[in-house]
């Protein structure tokens, strides 16, 4: 926890004369550093900028880009753009929601999986497309999505073992 506090101060030091107009860039930096916005980090940012925490939380929840739980070991972005929608990404999303039992933006309790919905990732030719830990996967279906994610978790665990 102390390490986290230090890291947080390091992020805040990047903005020496920060005012309330720097709230979003600071939150972005914090998220880049930690992968999400923790309660503690939002409080620290609010105190630093002299902003009420309710304001910080309000701004953070307004934007889709901020998340409030750590990323899972396997993180999936599912595209809900027009082409992907037409090709059935809605069903893929339903499958994710049902199997993982969490909402977009959340992380499973074991910390393994997280997913989020994005509007269009500009790969309409591959519809319905998802990215998993940054890799693109084309033509996803309700059958293939589970297998794809599990493969990543396996790799991740094997790496941990080494």
């Amino acid at each position: 926890m102390i390490a986290t506090q230090n890291e947080l101060s390091t992020v805040l030091e990047e903005f020496p004369d920060a005012g309330r107009e720097h709230l979003i860039p600071i939150l972005q930096s914090v998220q880049t550093q930690f992968g999400y916005l923790s309660r503690e980090s939002m409080i620290a940012v609010g105190q630093r900028l002299g902003l009420p925490i309710s304001k910080v939380y309000g701004v953070a929840t307004f934007y889709n880009q901020f998340r409030f739980q750590p990323l899972g070991k396997v993180h999936c972005q599912i595209c809900r753009g027009t082409a992907c929608h037409v090709k059935g990404s809605g069903k893929v999303l339903d499958t994710l929601r049902r199997t993982l039992q969490v909402e977009p933006g959340q992380t499973t309790r074991d910390g393994n999986y997280s997913y989020e919905v994005v509007a269009c990732i500009g790969a309409c030719g591959l519809a319905p497309v998802v990215t998993v830990n940054g890799d693109f996967h084309a033509e996803m279906s309700t059958d293939t999505i589970g297998k794809t994610l599990r493969k990543y978790l396996k790799t991740d665990t094997e790496q941990d073992g080494n």
């Binding site: 309660r39 939002m42 009420p52 925490i53 309710s54 304001k55 910080v56 939380y57 309000g58 929840t61 307004f62 934007y63």
Partner: peptide, 21 residues
Amino acid sequence: GVAAIDFIDRGSQATVGTAFD
């Protein structure tokens, strides 16, 4: 000068609530 509440979330999801809801 208290600001205990603010808008949370956006669009049809928006509510008024406290920090961390």
